[in-house]
Simulated assay, not measured.
Amino acid sequence: MLLITCPVTRTDELVADRRIRSVTNHPTHLALHVECPACGAVHVYRTGRRWDTARTRTRIADRAAAQSSADAAAARAARVAVPA
């Protein structure tokens, strides 16, 4: 049994193993294709330590880029606000 969250209905669903349609092995994660009992669609759920590490690394890089662009915008605004 698997506990999944349906991305369509946003409900937690308990799913039997027979609802797993396929499992794909990737270098960074496993992809489970699961038929959802709530909406009837097939959703892909990715699992694995390396997948979580890669996602975390990407989130940290995105935050750093957003912070640096916010700092640059603040610096530009400060230069415009100061009379010459």
Rank of each mutant, 00 (worst) to 15 (best):
T5G: 11
C6A: 05
V23D: 07
A74P: 01
M1H: 07
D62L: 10
A41W: 07
L3H: 12
A41L: 12
I20T: 02
R49E: 13
L30Y: 15
P83S: 03
E35P: 00
A66S: 12
I60W: 05
A41M: 11
W51D: 12
P37W: 04
H26A: 09
H43L: 06
V8N: 11
V8S: 11
Y45L: 14
R79V: 01
T9Y: 02
R18P: 00
L32H: 14
I20W: 03
E35C: 05
L30S: 15
R59T: 12
A70I: 02
P27Q: 05
A61D: 10
A66I: 00
R19L: 14
R59N: 15
R19G: 02
A78R: 14
V80I: 13
R50V: 13
L30R: 15
M1D: 07
H26I: 05
V23G: 08
M1E: 10
G48M: 04
R59M: 11
L2Y: 13
S69K: 08
A16E: 09
A70E: 09
Y45D: 07
D71Y: 00
R57T: 13
C36N: 06
C36D: 06
S68I: 03
R76H: 07
T56M: 12
E35I: 04
T56H: 14
A70F: 02
R76M: 04
A31D: 13
L2A: 06
P7D: 06
R19I: 06
D62V: 03
S22T: 12
I4N: 04
A64L: 11
T9D: 09
Q67E: 10
L2S: 04
I20H: 02
V34W: 01
R59W: 02
R76E: 05
R10K: 12
C39G: 08
V34N: 00
T56V: 02
D52A: 10
T9F: 04
C39F: 03
S68Y: 03
G40D: 07
G40I: 07
L14N: 12
P7W: 00
R19M: 14
R76I: 01
D12G: 10
A74E: 07
Y45W: 14
D17E: 15
R79Q: 11
R18S: 15
V8G: 01
L14A: 15
A38W: 02
D71T: 01
R49K: 13
A81N: 03
A64K: 10
L3F: 05
R57Y: 08
C39D: 05
P83K: 04
D62W: 00
V42L: 10
H26Y: 15
D62G: 04
A84P: 09
R76A: 13
A54E: 15
H29W: 08
D12E: 14
T28W: 08
